[in-house]
């Protein structure tokens, strides 16, 4: 089985978000970038587990400039066999999906795994777009993946519960919590990652469908109104009379 895991670079979850250039650019000064958690914890680790069980290869792919090298090495240290970097700034989700779909058309893969969303742009977009471009089956928000020959069984989250679905390879999934447990790379993995192959591929031509014009920060709360622990009925009254939500 040939697994392709899409990984994205995302600011560490503790990052204080700020902007520059008149609020048109994300301020990445001193920001620590990580592998997007859904890509790393769930998509990548599940692909590795299945490879260990069934054989095959796990390739990670990233659309990004040379500064994403650190996160690619992290994915290799966790256990991916090799990596592909499409050498372009990821302008929007459709651009990323087109680059990856083009690469998949030229190189045979059985299962493409994405995280359910990135923690910076929160779109839940790339996986579905790749599936649409390739005309492959798509299972979104998958919380488990089992393989039996060419047939895969997955659980996916739905409103108020989950459902079990079946799909045959090739297909695309987006991985959510439950699919696997995060792995911490060991020393051997980190050493091995240094020499694993990373192919740098030129991007294919693509037009831009969307762009970000500017950013703003949400309004801060005006301050908390404290109620005494001995007078909880005051809170009930405030929620009813002032906030008008109960």
């Amino acid at each position: 089985m040939k697994f392709l895991v899409c990984i994205s670079k995302a600011p560490d979850t503790t990052t204080k978000i700020a902007f520059t250039d008149n609020n048109t650019k994300f301020n990445n000064d001193k920001v620590v970038f990580i592998v997007n958690p859904y890509d790393e914890w769930y998509a990548l680790v599940r692909a590795l587990e299945l490879k260990e069980k069934l054989g095959g290869t796990v390739t990670v792919i990233n659309v990004g400039a040379a500064d994403t090298d650190a996160i690619i090495r992290k994915a290799l240290a966790i256990g991916a066999d090799d990596a592909v970097r499409i050498d372009a700034e990821p302008v929007d989700a459709m651009f990323v999906a087109k680059q990856i779909a083009e690469y998949v058309k030229e190189n045979a893969y059985d299962i493409v795994l994405c995280g359910k969303e990135t923690i910076d742009y929160n779109g839940s977009e790339v996986g579905g777009m790749i599936a649409g471009l390739l005309d492959w089956g798509f299972v979104s928000l998958a919380s488990s993946l089992e393989l039996n020959g060419n047939t895969a069984t997955l659980n996916r989250e739905i409103a108020g519960g989950h459902e079990t679905v079946e799909v045959t390879i090739p297909f695309v999934l987006s991985a959510a919590k439950g699919m696997a447990e995060a792995r911490i790379p060991n020393m051997r993995g980190i050493m091995a990652a240094r020499t694993k192959p990373v192919a740098v591929v030129a991007p294919s031509a693509s037009e831009n469908y969307t762009s970000i014009l500017s950013y703003e920060l949400p309004n801060d709360k005006t301050g908390v109104k404290l109620v005494s622990a001995d007078n909880v009925s005051e809170l009930v009254a405030l929620l009813h009379n002032e906030a008008k939500i109960i």
């Binding site: 923690i119 742009y121 014009l213 950013y215």
Partner: peptide, 8 residues
């Protein structure tokens, strides 16, 4: 950014 900002 997971609700930490808004983009136009």
């Amino acid at each position: 950014f997971s609700g930490k900002a808004i983009a136009l």
